[in-house]
Design a binder for these strands. Structure first.
Lengths: 184, 184
DNA sequence: TTCATTTCTTAACAATTGTTAATGTAGTAA
DNA sequence: TTACTACATTAACAATTGTTAAGAAATGAA
């Protein structure tokens, strides 16, 4: 989404020069928190290199429910849109390079580029379906089924993400995931 | 949401006369399917009287994940917005009176009333948070905790909805819910 | 390299749930 | 009323998971 926007912007060199500095790039080490649960999101991020996860706290433990990789936009959309405290934390899993854009610059873009607004809403709607699918899968499928789906359809995640995060993503303990892996 | 729109419309009697017939009211018996999983949603509904649930199929059994009551708008928003097959079915639990509005009329409203579009997007954003909360609760809390939350915060649902739907909503079998209820 | 930390596996036991099936109960229609 | 249907409870057993704890393996830093 942000990628497309940047492309749109670059075609218009005059305006691009105005926004070039809005897209701030920063290097972050592993386990850096970009947005903390309970705080209101003022940024949207784009991952240039690396990997993030979103998680929330449950009785002192953290439960991961999404992973993000290169070229994906990441935000607590709900917090960003509704100006409400984020329900979850966004944190890096690996050392990463992140492009961030502030809400105020985001709104400037909004006003200058009508096509941007459309791209953004399209993205939102798709994200809505995404959420619904994630939700339904989490309800519908057993941890074992969801693990096998990961192995089949997202081997990259399996390879790249530490297993205890995956366990948490599957809704089970690392112990239980280890059992599933060695059961067959 | 639809309620507010109707109120806005009624203030403008000329336009209201144009739309009055768009809001079709119908009586439906229990277990009537308003939208079937896999089909594209062409309507938004408002519950005047009665109660609905949304569910999807898992190995021949149905899993309920939301309940809707009087004055609530109901739709497969994702399907409606993205023109994609609905991920779930919407069905009545009780004999109900439903107001429905078609997508084409919805779009007419869109174009005539700028304030409608805003109300609608506000609703969408809120719905987004709603989904996130529902999702997080389903992940975070045990069936027992979620049942106790229902008893405390939504006793109306407990009273009104057959127990096996509630069990399914909690992610467990009716047998297991019965055990939870009689454990304390 | 070596040491320390993080991550993963394995084991034993308790707790919860699913499954199947039988029984009980309430409401509805003839 | 009776019979039927839908719904809820209970029991027994299997399967899965959580918990705790110990040890193995991998990773990263000095």
């Amino acid at each position: 989404m942000l990628n497309e926007i940047i492309e749109i912007l670059k075609k218009d060199k005059i305006k691009w020069s105005e926004f070039e500095n809005s897209f701030k790039e920063k290097k972050i080490p592993s386990k850096t928190i970009l947005l903390e649960a309970g705080k209101i999101s003022n940024y949207v991020y784009l991952i240039k290199k690396g990997c993030l996860r979103s998680w929330f706290n449950k009785d002192g433990k953290d439960i991961t429910f999404q992973f993000f990789f290169e070229n994906q936009p990441v935000a607590s959309i709900d917090s960003f849109l509704n100006n409400q405290p984020s329900l979850f934390t966004i944190e890096s899993i690996e050392p990463s390079i992140i492009i961030s854009i502030s809400k105020s610059n985001f709104e400037k873009l909004y006003n200058l580029y009508p096509e941007f607004k459309e791209v953004f809403y399209d993205y939102l709607f798709k994200r809505f379906r995404n959420y619904a699918e994630l939700f339904l899968s989490r309800i519908k499928d057993t941890p074992k089924e969801r693990y096998e789906d990961l192995v089949k359809n997202h081997p990259d995640i399996i390879k790249r993400v530490p297993q205890h995060y995956i366990a948490s993503y599957l809704g089970i303990t690392p112990v239980s995931l280890s059992r599933i892996r060695n059961r067959k």
